[in-house]
């Protein structure tokens, strides 16, 4: 067990008027409303996992990450990561983790990108040979030759994010915490970074915990998803199991000859909707697919067959809105009208 948290809880005191005296109130211990941002979170993560830590804004994701990375002390609960207590053994612990905040930078704005890495070499006490080897490999993997000697302020967002990625990993951490690493990136840069993360996880056995609103990252990288909302863990399991939480099923889309639509044959299976000459069917399990196609082929001449998996995106949207995280029963299979 590389990360273990038991009943992790963090309170913040909220004052009605959030003025510049906010912290003064806090210091004087004036009464305020206590908001429980993270509420009894239990986590168990094995070495080498790639976990998506998801939840709507304000769910307590960043606060959890900050507690796990040793910056914030939990109000209640226990954390043990790599056998250490992150906030008590802060220095020793910091040496072994990497953290990347997509919205912050740890690079030196006015200096060539390379200088930022040289500084990290000293801060983390990385032996010269390890450092050179790692840096070369990263430059290769992320295609950074062109801009490694350019001042950071001249870099594009995508280039800078590659730099941030290297900065978070150059000291060979065992765990990497990522907070929105692909925010605002174009498709190409995103792809490169996702590829890189997959490599780091697979080849270097770095355990990764990722928060992102970019479902692309999650689809591609995470096998396991932990979902929190209002400070509580609502789901913890395989990505595919998350899809089972909502009623969404696969869609089978049949494109049929336009002339056939007008004939309006009675169908053995009812399509949930029709659009032009396209018919949409809900599919509960894969065996149904061939049955629907076979049945439809009797009434229509089928031009094209498409199957749409429910996207994590829409699964999450439904979950966030409904706040109903209990596993929903599967849709009843519609019996064919004419057996």
């Amino acid at each position: 067990m590389i990360i273990q948290a038991k009943h992790l809880t963090r309170d913040f005191k909220i004052y009605k008027a959030r003025s510049s005296f906010h912290m003064l109130n806090q210091i004087l211990r004036r009464k305020g409303e206590i908001k429980r941002v993270v509420d009894g979170v239990d986590l168990e993560i094995q070495e080498g996992e790639f976990v998506g830590y998801l939840g709507p804004n304000d769910a307590g994701k960043s606060t959890t990450i900050k507690m796990l990375s040793g910056v914030l002390q939990p109000t209640l609960g226990e954390i043990s990561v790599l056998g250490l207590n992150p906030s008590k053994d802060r220095k020793k612990y910091a040496q072994q983790i990497g953290v990347l905040y997509g919205q912050r930078t740890q690079l030196w704005w006015d200096l060539p990108l390379r200088d930022s890495f040289d500084l990290l070499k000293a801060i983390y006490n990385i032996p010269q040979t390890d450092f050179t080897k790692r840096l070369h490999r990263f430059i290769e993997l992320l295609d950074m030759h062109e801009f490694i000697n350019q001042p950071v302020r001249q870099l594009s967002l995508g280039q800078r994010m590659k730099g941030e990625m290297v900065a978070a990993l150059i000291h060979n951490p065992r765990i990497l915490f990522l907070d929105e690493p692909t925010i605002g990136l174009d498709v190409l840069a995103k792809d490169r970074i996702q590829e890189f993360l997959a490599y780091i996880n697979k080849e270097e056995k770095v355990t990764v915990m990722l928060t992102s609103h970019n479902m692309d990252d999650v689809e591609r990288l995470c096998k396991r998803i932990i979902l929190i909302d209002q400070g509580k863990v609502k789901f913890d399991g395989a990505k595919d199991a998350l899809r089972d939480l909502v009623k969404q099923s696969k869609l089978l889309i049949l494109e049929v000859a336009a002339g056939d639509m007008k004939l309006n044959h009675p169908l053995p299976y009812a399509p949930i909707k029709e659009e032009g000459n396209r018919l949409f069917f809900e599919v509960a399990d894969d065996a149904e697919v061939s049955q629907i196609i076979a049945a439809s082929a009797q009434s229509y001449s089928i031009l094209k067959v498409d199957i749409e998996e429910p996207k994590i995106d829409s699964v999450l949207k439904e979950l966030y809105l409904s706040k109903n995280y209990q596993a929903a029963p599967r849709r009843m299979v519609i019996e064919p009208i004419n057996p």
Binding site: K66, S69, G70, V71, R90, K91, K92, A94, Q95, I97, V99, Y101, R104, T105, Q106, I123, Y124
Partner: peptide, 10 residues
């Protein structure tokens, strides 16, 4: 950004 300074082994 102070979180990043707190996250260094120093």
């Amino acid at each position: 950004n102070i979180v990043q300074d707190f996250q260094r082994p120093w």
